[in-house]
Design a protein around this nucleic acid. Structure first.
Lengths: 204, 204
DNA sequence: CTAAAAACTGAACAATCGTTCTAAAATAAT
DNA sequence: ATTATTTTAGAACGATTGTTCAGTTTTTAG
């Protein structure tokens, strides 16, 4: 790779990183291109050199986040054997590394009924479905192995997903330990609800 | 009440109603005063006659929603005896009447770390805590009556709240029946997880 | 060393934002 | 009927928005 190409790639990454954090902090609409320019030191014109427009930048950020998350989690996953452990692991990994997922704070803006941006909506649906499909796969494995009762894995996946991403909203005033406790308690509640009777888990 | 006062109150209500729906649909930032003016036929100047500013309008909407919800639910509540029934009842009532709660779609915009509006943030915290306190009261009753295991009712309330408000986010492409099924399944999962062993409920 | 290409800057654009203001219309009070 | 008050309308404001564009710097290619 060229010295020019390297530097170009670096500024593109710098823009995307700043945009991600700003979208999380302020929301999509409230984040202006000028905000991103100020945060990075990259001129507005240069931002438009690297990205088609604000919308394209957001979609790029979303795509990158999804890739990054999956890579990191697949690495973490190796240390867990049972599905139960993996579900707890996901929650922990979620809290520690992705405490602020762009979707959690930003997505709602685009699910408006009228005047909404279909391009971004489709991208969001894709991302959400990827998330849920992954959870569904995990839960199916747990059901197949007898760790959980036979059940509708898609419904369970949606509930699990809700727990993971929804808890964020009421953790804003909690510290890390309190947050982890809340998440652990939530997963426990979820698990004991779907654990089979001959599971290793017992009601305490 | 005067004919003038009545008409004035009516336009104020009309503005608040339209604002609520627009905030839900498009988010706070993306909803402009002109949008509200267009939706109601009330002039921008008149909106500012009835409300101090956009922020005051939002807080008013939030306050009204909370009052309305509580009144409606207290009416519904009468038909349920056990806490279990009441929790299911809340979910049903939630889906049918408050499918779109302003908080669910709008709140995230104001929990940004910098440059955020403290007035609205406080109002949001108040509303969220009211919600959770109410759930906590219900769960405490269930624990006291022996319907649920002894547990940290605040943690459970937060989890229940998350379930209720978070599920919304993945119900956008579901019809009413599917939504109700998902909510019922979520509450069941939640309940069987915290139900005491001598509870009337059995794992199916 | 020079020319072409890529990366980048910052001023400028029209559109839209929340808000203010002046004045007109509608109603109440006298 | 006339005055006073409340309610409404809509033009206008400065600020900010996403985006464009002409031009400058930086790097590559020949």
């Amino acid at each position: 790779m060229n010295k020019k190409q390297t530097k170009s790639m670096l500024t593109k990454k710098k823009i995307a990183d700043a945009a991600k954090h700003l979208f999380i902090q302020k929301g999509y609409t409230a984040t202006s291109i000028e905000n991103i320019s100020d945060a990075t030191g990259v001129s507005k014109g240069n931002i438009y050199y690297h990205f088609e427009n604000k919308e394209g930048l957001f979609i790029y950020v979303l795509d990158e986040w999804e890739k990054e998350w999956m890579e990191q989690w697949e690495e973490q996953k190796k240390q867990y054997s049972s599905t139960t452990e993996q579900l707890h692991g996901i929650a922990k990994h979620f809290v520690i590394n992705d405490y602020n997922h762009p979707l959690t704070n930003v997505a709602d803006e685009f699910f408006s009924h009228e005047n909404s941006n279909t391009l971004i909506q489709n991208q969001l649906y894709k991302t959400i479905n990827t998330r849920i499909s992954y959870s569904q796969k995990l839960l199916s494995e747990g059901i197949a192995s007898g760790e959980f009762k036979t059940d509708d894995s898609l419904l369970l996946a949606k509930i699990f997903d809700t727990l993971l991403y929804g808890l964020n909203n009421i953790c804003r005033d909690l510290n890390m330990k309190e947050t982890l406790d809340l998440y652990a308690k939530a997963i426990d509640t979820f698990l004991y609800g779907i654990a089979s009777d001959d599971s290793a888990h017992s009601h305490d």
